[in-house]
């Protein structure tokens, strides 16, 4: 699993020394079940299930804050994307499009919808 993530993300996950700077600056961390640095940690110690089942990868908003601050140059945004894709490519959607309410659909901007579908559906 870690190799697949490395291949898709082109990031060296072995470089992470768990300083936590990614998690400390993450705007979405409050809603995450495991922290961004732990995502890498679970991959490093060979527990991919923790990562595949976590909410964190879906909460990540691809804001790149962690990526620009990582002292080891790991683009964690790409790591999150890689893990999401491993799930989505099994044809597992994160959200059920049909359940999105009419209210939401008409109120939010198009870019939000397109982005949401791109990131959260197969």
């Amino acid at each position: 699993m870690i190799n697949k993530v490395i291949e898709l993300s082109e990031q060296n996950l072995y470089a992470c020394y768990q300083c936590g700077k990614c998690s400390a600056g993450c705007p979405s961390v409050k809603l995450m079940d495991i922290m961004p640095n732990q995502v890498i940690r679970y991959l490093q110690i060979g527990k991919p299930d923790k990562v595949l089942q976590c909410k964190t990868i879906w909460i990540c908003a691809s804001c790149y804050t962690c990526s620009v601050r990582c002292p080891r140059g790991i683009d964690l945004t790409r790591v999150m994307e890689a893990i999401r894709l491993i799930q989505l490519r099994k044809n597992i959607d994160y959200i059920k499009v049909r359940e999105i309410s009419e209210d939401v659909l008409v109120s939010v901007p198009q870019i939000a919808l397109v982005a949401e579908f791109r990131k959260h559906t197969a």
């Binding site: 936590g20 700077k21 998690s23 400390a24 600056g25 993450c26 961390v29 601050r69």
Partner: peptide, 27 residues
Amino acid sequence: RGKVSKIYEDNGELVLLAVDTLTGEPL
């Protein structure tokens, strides 16, 4: 244990966005 990600000033105080990597809590 955790590297501070950002420091800013608010109301005469300094706010540190940090994390406790041992408990897994953002601070």
